[in-house]
Computed example of a mutant assay.
Amino acid sequence: MAAPLAGRRVLDLGALCAQRPHALAASMAARLCAAYGAEVVRPVPESGEPFARLPPLLPDGGSALDRFLNAGKRRGPAATGAFDAAIGDSAALGAHAAAVPVRVRLSVFGPGEDPPMSELGLLALSGLLDIVGEAEGPPARLAGHQPAYAAGLAACTGLLAALRAGGEEVVEVSLFDVTAWLNWKAPASVMVLGAAPSRSGLPKDWHTLPVRDGHVALVYQDKDWPALRDLVGDPRLRREEFLTIAGRRRHHAELMAVLRPWFAARSRAEITAAAQARRIPIGPVLAPAELLDDAQHRARGFLGPGGMPHLPLRWDGARVGAEATDAALA
């Protein structure tokens, strides 16, 4: 399949954005454009690449974030020539891309509403912080840069649509709107149940449990309980207090006292194989290095030998413009 943006030039202004969430989102959108075959040019300020020392750091001291977001891009002090599209915040676009026909403008709340904002602030405003983590502890920040990366995906989608339509267009992407969309279950719960979910009201059905060689994610629904009960095989699980989901929630501590020793005595592979045989959605918690050898990732060709994801993927696992993308990452 031919790369859909082959022959297009995209200006990545992520390094010139004033705020970190905007910079990450613009860089992610441009990263996808490069994977779609575009020539992506990334001007950097005199101080250098802002992502160059951001964690996580690689053994050689470089930034894995920089390596991932800027793969396949051409960096330099200035951008010259004509461009089909540009991605950045309001100030960066105004200073460097006023004549570019398609401009993707990132802001916090929308045009003209761009106050100082962090990714943590976006998570809090969207309500996501209220549903992550244990009720007894502090809110837990989502791993990675999920709000910014989701905004980058939205920005790339809008850019592709604008290029296909032709002509001039400003694509507006609100970081808050995207983050609120990630928490779509909150408004749905308000409409259906009359209240938004919160950590204090979430049932304790799903857990991460220690096992002999790490951890597994114990994820099951009420329909899976008989299979899980039989898998563990402890007669105490047939007691009356564990017959219903309401009873298991009320007697959570007693339930865990029965389950934990069984899991702790077995390996991740042993538990996963036994659970899959009974169609219980239990899976291992993998370390980053283990993902390189994950059977599903290998089958889909998702990760390269050095751990770099091959993006984007089609629904059937094939990579778009794979030859051009691989050459750019080499």
Rank of each mutant, 00 (worst) to 15 (best):
V44W: 09
G166P: 07
L24Y: 05
G144R: 03
R212Y: 05
V104T: 04
V258Y: 01
A135S: 12
L311W: 12
V102N: 11
D224F: 02
E169Q: 15
P45Y: 07
L182N: 07
P50K: 03
R74S: 12
G283H: 12
G306F: 09
E323H: 09
A327M: 00
M1H: 15
A140F: 14
P77R: 12
V258M: 01
E136W: 01
K223T: 12
Y149D: 08
G166W: 13
E39F: 00
H145T: 00
R268H: 00
G76E: 08
D12L: 00
I271T: 02
Q276G: 12
K204W: 14
R75P: 12
L5G: 01
H251M: 06
A188Y: 10
A287I: 08
P56Y: 00
A265T: 07
A25Y: 04
V258S: 06
L292Y: 06
R75Y: 03
R42P: 04
V40N: 07
A217E: 13
A274G: 07
P261M: 06
A52E: 10
P261S: 05
A91P: 08
R266C: 13
Q276Y: 05
A295L: 13
R199G: 04
G121W: 08
L24V: 03
R8L: 12
L228K: 01
E119S: 04
P309F: 10
L313F: 06
P59Q: 11
E323R: 14
V178T: 10
D114T: 04
E136I: 06
A3E: 10
A322N: 04
L255P: 05
E240M: 02
P147I: 02
G62A: 14
R278K: 11
R250E: 14
S267T: 15
A150H: 14
P284G: 07
R250F: 05
V104L: 07
E290K: 11
G306N: 14
A99T: 15
S200N: 11
D294I: 00
L218Q: 09
P116V: 02
G7D: 09
R298Q: 14
A269Q: 15
D316N: 14
L243R: 13
L209N: 01
A299P: 07
A34E: 05
G72F: 03
L237E: 11
T272E: 15
F302V: 13
P77G: 15
L237P: 13
G61F: 03
G307N: 10
A186T: 11
R300I: 02
H145A: 04
L32V: 09
L106H: 00
E49H: 14
E46S: 15
R164E: 15
P4E: 04
N70A: 15
V219Y: 09
E254M: 00
L243V: 11
A26N: 04
H96Q: 13
V173K: 04
S200I: 10
P111Q: 13
L5A: 07
